[in-house]
Structure formats: structure tokens, C-alpha cells
Design a protein around this nucleic acid. Sequence first.
DNA 1: TTGAGATTTTGAATCATTCTAAACGAGTAA
DNA 2: TTACTCGTTTAGAATGATTCAAAATCTCAA
Lengths: 146, 146
Amino acid sequence: MIQNLNKHERESLHEALAKSGQKITPQREIVYTVLLAQRDHPTVDEVYNRALETMPGLSLATVYNCLETFVGCGLVRQVNHERESTRYCPNLAPHAHFRDESTGRVHDIELPKEILDQLTKILPANFETETIEISFQGRTKSSTQN
Amino acid sequence: MIQNLNKHERESLHEALAKSGQKITPQREIVYTVLLAQRDHPTVDEVYNRALETMPGLSLATVYNCLETFVGCGLVRQVNHERESTRYCPNLAPHAHFRDESTGRVHDIELPKEILDQLTKILPANFETETIEISFQGRTKSSTQN
DNA sequence: TTGAGATTTTGAATCATTCTAAACGAGTAA
DNA sequence: TTACTCGTTTAGAATGATTCAAAATCTCAA
């Protein structure tokens, strides 16, 4: 079952929403809770189904809305791979993603600050970056499967 | 108007198709020609409309087919940004993409080999990469607009 | 407690992409 | 030449994730 948000988690949610002038709603709390509970980069549909267990009346559109709101206030990142359904990730530390083609799973890859710095340096001077997305695609060589 | 393929370009097309056991067709030549003629990362629809000028009967499905074929034989790369239409890019040198939010345009950014090397090093040992996608999103600070 | 404005809900609409089945075409064997 | 085979193209239908619209409901500041 899905744990409630702890004090710190609830605070960052409320803070982030307040900062961008949005309201706290049960739906938003639950969707955020679902994201934190299982950090496996779920799709909207997966979030929806997990959230339904706690709030049976919840609608899919609301999940879309909530997630969009979270992305808007920087609480959550979108993960896009090819044309697949968008996935969502509450890991705010700079990181890349590795998508395992055999399982479809997405793994977070910690991203050293130096590399990020170097990356921004390859841009022409007048290019101002807002977001950088780095995604690997490949396979994991079994044995110690992650 | 769209130039024909030069000798070298036609050769790489034929070679790539032959290597993966596929046929040379007028449609494929035209679609490839369109891609080389204007390297602005067109969407399928844009490619389709440009190609129609040369081959009025061409169908959209065929453009999808051709582009998929090219990606399959490594002649062309897909460029995905968020949920937008897939764009296509005949630049085979390793490079990243910068998407200008104000214009929607996508710019190629040359990618130094060292950075690529460093990037593959941050992966766990058993992760085998097939493709890496690096995309920046932001704005260009006018003045010397590119 | 109230009212304004934000949010949620349902179901319809959109739109890029994929699928299907029939027609076509190039190359090969007879 | 003719027939055959297979990959390709075509048109249109189908799919599926996402967005939209309008009405109902809720949140929060006053």
C-alpha cells in the first residue's frame, strides 16, 4: 500500500504549489504520493491506476492535470523516449536516463556536475538553456540484473 | 526547387539500402533528396509536402515508410522533443540538438568526442548503449539570430 | 461563511502514427 | 514474352496518448 507523504515531502509539495499560486487538493497529494512511493518512472496510466487504489473516483484527466502542474512548478520531470508514453520522475538531482530496450525500464544515471558544465560550454554564446535531456538507449548485460 | 542527389549522395543511399537488403525506389530517392536539400529537421508532414512538389502522387504513408527505412539502415536520425512530431536529420556526425522554444527550430550542436566518451563512462559496467540522445531546450538571445 | 477563481470530472475531439488490404513494379524463371 | 514472387506503395481506417470543453465541485482569502 501507498505510504502517506512524510512531513518534509508534504512541505515541498505545498511550498512548490504555493510558490506558483496553485491550490492544494487531495488529488494532487495522492498523485505526488504515488510518484514518490515507487520511483520507476511510471506513465500517466500507471500513476492513474496506482492512485485509483487510494482514491477510486479519480479521473485520468486529473492525473494529466496534476502531473502537468508538478512539471510546471519544478517538482517533477518528464521523461520522453522516442514516441512512447511520457513518464514521470520525481528525482530532481541532475541525472540522465537509460532505457533498457529489452525490459522497457528506465534507470536514473547520476550526472556529474563537470559533464553538465562541459555540455553547456559546447553551445554558441547566445543559446540560453532551460533544460537538458540526456538519454541512453540500449540493453543491460544480464548477470547482475538491476 | 529541389536539387537532385549528387553522385556521392546517391551512392550512400544505394549502398545503405543494398546493405540492408532493400530496394531503390523513386519515392525513397525523393524523400532522401528532400532531407538533404534543407537540413532543418523537418517533420514527416514537412517532408511530405516538400516531396509532393516533385512527385505529386506520393502518399503520406510512404513518407513514413521511407523515413523508417532510412532510420533502420542508419542513414538518418530521429529527433524527438517532448511530445512533438518526430523530426528527421540526415546529419550522421555525432551531435546534440538545441530546440529554440521561441521559434520551434532545432539546431545541430557539434558534440566533441571527449564528451561522448565521458558520458559512456558514467554508466554501470553492464549497460550497453546503442544510442545517446542529448537535447537542449531554451531560447536564443536574439541579436545575431541563427 | 461566502464568493471568486481554480480544479475536477466526463466524454468528446485531436492528431501523429500505425495498420490493413489491395494494387503495383522490378527482377527472375520459364 | 509471360508468369511469378516479393517488396513497396497507396488510401483509408484504426489506434492510442493527450488535450479540450463545459458543467459541477472545491479551496481559500476575506
